[in-house]
């Protein structure tokens, strides 16, 4: 039995759980290809025009899996992973949209309702639909989830050490140390963005590698602990409603308030609703803190050359600022 998992949206955060869970259950797991221009073009044709780019990309991946001949596609409905918080409406309605786009495939979409109180979404109740659809006894599911839970913790620990998710996915972590430039005038950048924007190399154009090739240290939200993320969010009357958006906003507040960070970059995909709020809040606060804040908005047409220029210009600006502060060179 082949189970397809789209390489899109929160795949980049939850693949350790889902891949190992299905493998433990004895299924063959098929991951869709990496995002490419051709794939996106196919996805756009299927999707309503105004919706955000990540959803268009998601549909391309589902299509890719169906073409690969999988028996089922796994499209979980992420409802909540924290008390009083939820997900963006597009995640909540994701299986409903997919079932309408891929009508002939409707009954082969597995869409369990994921509702958990922590990030580690391996509670049995979230996978009832998987058990029902694939006829799996709960004992077997429990032990599969136990393995999945362990894999997820390992994955998160590597992230917290400072490895990027791309490095973890490619298995480039064993026996190595995460990238860190320790020269005194090194620029440190906080990179904000959802995992499906930062780690989908088509969207982000591998921005982390570009910064590293300039000797810049980059920190993303997944490298921060829960405690660090919520450290500077106390002044908000009300948190955002969407858990991953809160993580991004919290990371942003952390980068703003901790002195070791010289600048902040926000990668956002065209049409993202929650990001429009985060962007505005960061814009207002970064002004007060006098910390450079750059928004890079990406859509399906974005070319690479303009990104390189912006990355280099931003880095140069931060370097000059830092040099004059350190007093080594006066500009």
């Amino acid at each position: 039995m082949k189970i397809g998992i789209p390489r899109a949206l929160v795949y980049y955060y939850y693949y350790p759980i889902w891949v190992s869970m299905f493998e433990e259950l004895g299924a063959e797991v098929v991951i869709s290809d990496e995002t490419s221009k051709n794939m996106i073009n196919e996805g756009i044709k299927l999707t309503v025009q105004e919706i955000c780019v990540p959803i268009k990309i998601f549909n391309s991946h589902v299509l890719n899996l169906i073409e690969k001949g999988v028996d089922y596609v796994f499209i979980p409905r992420l409802v909540s992973i924290k008390k009083y918080e939820t997900f963006c409406p597009k995640f909540l309605g994701l299986p409903d949209m997919a079932k309408n786009v891929f009508k002939d495939f409707e009954d082969r979409i597995i869409s369990p309702k994921i509702s958990s109180s922590t990030d580690n979404i391996t509670n049995l109740s979230s996978y009832k639909e998987v058990m029902k659809k694939l006829n799996i006894p709960s004992g077997k599911m429990k032990s599969a989830l136990k393995v999945a839970s362990k894999k997820f913790e390992e994955f998160r620990n590597l992230s917290l050490k400072g490895f990027t998710i791309s490095e973890i996915l490619e298995g480039k972590t064993s026996g190595k140390k995460p990238f860190k430039n320790t020269a005194p005038d090194t620029v440190n950048i906080g990179l904000l963005g959802y995992v499906y924007n930062v780690y989908d190399n088509f969207i982000s154009m591998d921005i982390i590698s570009k910064f590293r090739s300039l000797g810049v240290n980059v920190v993303t939200f997944d490298m921060l602990s829960e405690k660090e993320i919520y450290k500077h969010m106390g002044h908000l009357n009300k948190h955002l409603f969407w858990t991953f958006s809160n993580k991004i906003l919290g990371a942003g507040m952390y980068f703003l308030n901790e002195d070791q960070f010289d600048g902040i970059i926000h990668i956002t995909a065209f049409g993202c609703g929650p990001d429009s709020y985060i962007g505005k809040m960061m814009e207002l606060d970064s002004d007060k803190k006098h910390k450079p804040f750059l928004t890079i908005r990406v859509d399906e047409h974005t070319g690479e050359s303009h990104l390189v220029t912006r990355v280099e210009a931003f880095t140069d600006m931060l370097k000059r600022k830092k040099m004059s502060q350190v007093g080594r060179v006066s500009v």
């Binding site: 309503v48 409406p89 309605g93 409903d96 949209m97």
Partner: peptide
Amino acid sequence: PFGCLPELVNQSIVPT
């Protein structure tokens, strides 16, 4: 309205 998240989901379902 432009950018309405829930109604965008609806728009995907309306054809059906």
